[in-house]
Simulated scan of single mutants.
Amino acid sequence: MKRFLPWIIGAVVIIGIYSWVKGINNTAVTLNQNIEESWGNVQTAYQRRNDLIGNLVNTVKGAADFEKSTLTAVIEARAKATSVTVDPTNISPEQLAAFNSAQSGVSSSLSKLLVSVEKYPELKANENFLKLQDELASTENQILTARTRFNEAVKPYNNHIATFPNSIFAGMFGFQKKAYFEAVAGAEKPVEVKF
C-alpha cells in the first residue's frame, strides 16, 4: 500500500490542477457568452431604431414638403450605421469606436430632423408621426439600457481574465480583454440650448 501512496497523491494533485484550470476556462467561456448575448441585445435595440427611422422618414415625406437635405442626411446616416459591424467574439476598442461613431451620426441627423419638424404644425399633429416619435424615444431608452447591460457583462469577464493566476491561463486559452462602450466624443460638454 505504501508504494502506491505517491501515485495516489500525484493523481489527486493532477486531478485538482485539472479541475482548477478547467474552472478558469469554463468561467471565462460562460462570461464571454454573456457578453455576446448582451451585444446581441445592443444590436437588436439599434436595429429597432433603424427600422423606426425608415417609417419616420416615410411619414415625414408623406405629410409635408420637407427639406430634402435633412431627410437625405438621416437616410445616409442610417445606411452608414447599418454597414458597420462588430465581431462579438473579439470586440476591440477600435470596432466599438467605429460603431459608436456611426450610431452617433444617426442620432445627430435624427435630432436635426425632429427639430426641423417644429416648423410643420400639421406634421406635429399627425397621429402616425406622434406614435413614431414616442416609439423612437422608447427605443433610445432601450439602447441606453442595452449598452449599460453590455458594459455590466464586460466587467466580470475582464476581471476574471485579468486577475492572477487566471491571466496566465486566459492568455494560453486565447481570451482577450473586451472593450467597454464609451460616451461619444464631446458628450462631456453641456448641450447649448438656444431659444
Rank of each mutant, 00 (worst) to 15 (best):
M1P: 13
K2H: 12
F4K: 10
L5N: 07
P6R: 07
P6H: 08
W7K: 12
V13W: 10
V13K: 04
I15F: 15
Y18F: 15
W20D: 10
K22L: 13
I24F: 15
I24V: 13
N25H: 11
T30H: 11
L31A: 10
N32M: 12
N32Q: 14
N32R: 11
E36K: 15
E37K: 13
G40K: 05
Q43L: 04
A45I: 03
Q47F: 02
R49S: 02
R49L: 01
R49K: 07
D51L: 00
N55I: 02
L56I: 00
N58V: 00
T59W: 02
T59V: 01
D65G: 06
E67I: 02
S69I: 03
T70M: 07
L71R: 08
L71S: 07
I75T: 15
A77R: 09
A77W: 11
R78K: 05
A81H: 06
V84Y: 12
V84I: 09
D87N: 15
P88C: 08
I91F: 12
E94D: 14
A97M: 09
A98T: 09
S104E: 14
V106A: 09
V106N: 06
L113I: 04
S116D: 04
V117C: 03
Y120P: 02
L123H: 01
K124W: 05
N128V: 02
L132P: 12
Q133N: 15
L136Y: 02
T139V: 05
L144P: 01
T145N: 11
R147L: 04
I161V: 03
P165H: 08
N166G: 06
I168H: 12
F169T: 08
F169W: 13
M172F: 14
Q176V: 06
A179Y: 13
F181C: 08
G186C: 01
K189Q: 15
P190A: 13
E192F: 13
F195K: 03
